[in-house]
């Protein structure tokens, strides 16, 4: 099971954040989230304070997975772009490098055309970063502390006793 993990280091996230910041400035979107396909949030930029980003990430990953299954029933590999239109808020979701989703939340300060155009650019930018993350060797980089399992064990004991 050693390959069953996805690791992001600080410099990866900094690089991703730079691309996302540029995107927000250009597209005038409210915020943008990068979510992995399992629904875990990787990073977020913009006005996200009032959002429950954990739940949104999980729900969007579920929604994307279900739409992908529908696409496959129609003979498509996937619908790589999803768009949900609301009265005030809209969401644009696109797949990057088949490993993460860019979730763009925007309102009437911008338009779907603008968002779509810049989303394609940001998607290209993130694709190369994510691919380089997946291909590199993590030799000599930060790892979980050797005490992690032991500490987690006692934390688990405390947590479930409190409950």
């Amino acid at each position: 099971m050693k390959d069953n993990r996805l690791v992001f280091y600080e410099d990866d996230i900094q690089e991703i954040d730079k691309v996302l910041e540029k995107f927000i400035a250009a597209s005038q979107a409210s915020c943008v989230l990068l979510v992995d396909l399992e629904g875990h949030l990787v990073t977020k930029k913009g006005f996200t304070d009032k959002l429950d980003t954990t739940s949104i990430s999980a729900l969007i990953a579920g929604s994307f997975a279900s739409t992908r299954a529908v696409a496959q029933k129609l003979g498509e590999a996937e619908f790589s772009v999803l768009f949900h239109q609301g009265v005030n808020e809209n969401i644009h979701i696109s797949l990057v490098a088949d490993r993460a989703l860019i979730v763009i939340i925007f309102d009437d300060r911008t338009t779907i055309g603008m968002v779509r155009m810049y989303a394609e650019q940001v998607s290209e930018g993130l694709k190369s970063i994510l691919e380089s993350i997946s291909e590199r060797k993590n030799e000599g980089r930060e790892t979980l502390s050797s005490d992690y399992a032991n500490e987690a064990e006692s934390q688990i004991d405390n947590f479930f006793e409190e409950g």
């Binding site: 099971m1 050693k2 069953n4 993990r5 996805l6 088949d98 790892t143 688990i156």
Partner: peptide, 19 residues
């Protein structure tokens, strides 16, 4: 958690998975 720890011990020099 044990599984994560085992993977950690095994990994360190490995290439990350491609989904």
């Amino acid at each position: 958690i044990k599984q994560i720890n085992n993977a950690q011990n095994l990994e360190s020099t490995d290439v990350q998975p491609k989904l």
